[in-house]
């Protein structure tokens, strides 16, 4: 099996980009779910101090899994940056992450992603792509 070198590196680049985006969305949704469970940080800090607040965060399973996923995302991003140009990797992963986050937040976090938020997301995605030009 001899794949065309150009095709295989393009495939690797996009697989890396997709992996970065999927890990980012998973990590962000899990940490957002954790912070939803924990509640307003200021209130907790006022009640049980900074130590209590930090303890509440680090003992939350969703937070632990979320931050592990974010760590994987970080290493995947470093790897992706070494495989392809930052001018492709940064906007591609950012826009895929924004789209994925909007859907995942609506489905898993039950956030009210109304028309205002979709329009904002569309502007941001377009802006990120234009900025990389």
């Amino acid at each position: 099996m001899t794949a065309h070198p150009h095709t295989s590196s393009l495939l690797l680049t996009w697989l890396c980009i997709l992996a970065v985006a999927v890990l980012a969305v998973t990590g962000e949704v899990l940490t957002a779910a954790a912070m939803n469970q924990i509640g307003d940080f200021d209130v907790i800090r006022a009640r049980s101090g900074m130590k209590g607040a930090v303890l509440a965060v680090v003992s939350n399973p969703a937070f632990v899994f979320g931050s592990l996923t974010m760590m994987l995302n970080f290493f995947m991003m470093l790897f992706a940056l070494s495989v392809a140009d930052v001018s492709l990797v940064a906007p591609a992963t950012a826009s895929l992450t924004y789209i994925g986050n909007a859907f995942a937040a609506r489905i898993f976090l039950r956030e009210n992603v109304n028309r205002r938020r979709w329009i904002a997301a569309a502007f941001v995605i377009l802006g990120v792509i234009l900025l990389s030009k």
Binding site: E28, V29, T31, A32, M35, N36, I38, G39, D40, F41, D42, Y98, N101, A102, A105, R106, L109, E111, N112, V113, R117, A120, A121, F123, V124
Partner: peptide, 11 residues
Amino acid sequence: LSWADLTFLMP
């Protein structure tokens, strides 16, 4: 994230 939505923070 403890006082705002994920989709609010994205922009």
